[in-house]
Design a binder for these strands. Structure first.
Lengths: 152, 152
DNA sequence: AGAAATTAAATTGCGCGCAATTAATGTTGG
DNA sequence: CCAACATTAATTGCGCGCAATTTAATTTCT
């Protein structure tokens, strides 16, 4: 009875330390590109579809404007993208890749390959892991378990 | 050929967003205890074994003194622990729980249960997930794949 | 049309996480 | 013994992540 409840903490720490190990592994790969890992995620989103609003990028990455605004300003200062107010809706800011930002995607092509290699890249296992993580993440988001209420 | 390499990025983002969802889920549970998630991790380590050095805590949690020193100072200011230089080796700082810090472990007993509940708590699945994450984390740490060298 | 509510982004403040450096203590080798 | 080296924490600087607030633009309701 005393050992079972700890398991969720152990999973959480495993995820926590795994994520930090990941961003550490990405660092040397992304440094030549002049990107941090969160900046790389934003570039991935834009490479997939250019011209998104801050809100759209935030929904994709689950980040808010408090995180994204300064991050996007840094990417703008690095000349990888531009930020312009939408003309039909002046509230939103539309983010466009520059030529340099678009070109970066080719230099970044090797990154996921190297990363997969560093992880051992057991492909089916990795796909299964990803699906479990996403399932649990979405379940946490719904918070169907009276979270916030003190435990019995 | 274009879809396979993206998989590692997808796993990384899954882990990244899962970890953030986790700390978000912990927040309302830990707030009544006056702890952040990293602070909770430090307390877990000390509840397991009191009187560890900063280095030992850091090895356990994979954090360095740049992160731990200010964090421990906050926990000291909250009267959950004390920090004293070791007498046989003045370089190291030994961290001891206060009575209040020890007592906190009882108030925190419900946290992993609530968390497990919020995740759906399919126990065997969670154990498997934890083991996979730790295996990949440790594999990344070894970096046996010429990481840091630009990809072909 | 005009007031109230809503939405989007920016701003502020705080706590990590980590690289790089510094300061102080210990250890080792000549 | 003492100089070179190693180890432990602390410090500095920067980039997230997020809660809370603010500002500006748009929508909605009457």
């Amino acid at each position: 009875m005393t050992s079972a409840p700890k398991l969720s903490d152990q999973l959480c720490f495993a995820a926590y330390s795994f994520t930090h190990a990941l961003t550490r592994a990405y660092r040397p790969l992304l440094e030549p590109l002049g990107l941090t890992y969160p900046q790389y995620l934003v570039m991935l989103v834009l490479w997939e579809a250019d011209g998104q609003t801050v809100k759209e990028i935030g929904e994709r990455l689950r980040l808010d404007s408090g995180t994204l605004t300064p991050l996007l300003k840094r990417l703008e200062a690095a000349h990888y993208l531009t930020r312009r107010r939408g003309q039909q809706d002046e509230r939103q800011v539309i983010v466009h890749l520059t030529d340099e930002g678009r070109a970066l995607s080719e230099k970044a092509a090797g990154v996921p390959v190297d990363l997969g290699c560093a992880m051992g890249a057991d492909w089916p296992e990795i796909a299964e892991l990803r699906d479990h993580l996403i399932k649990l993440r979405d379940r946490l988001g719904e918070a169907g378990c009276a979270i916030g209420e003190p435990g019995a």
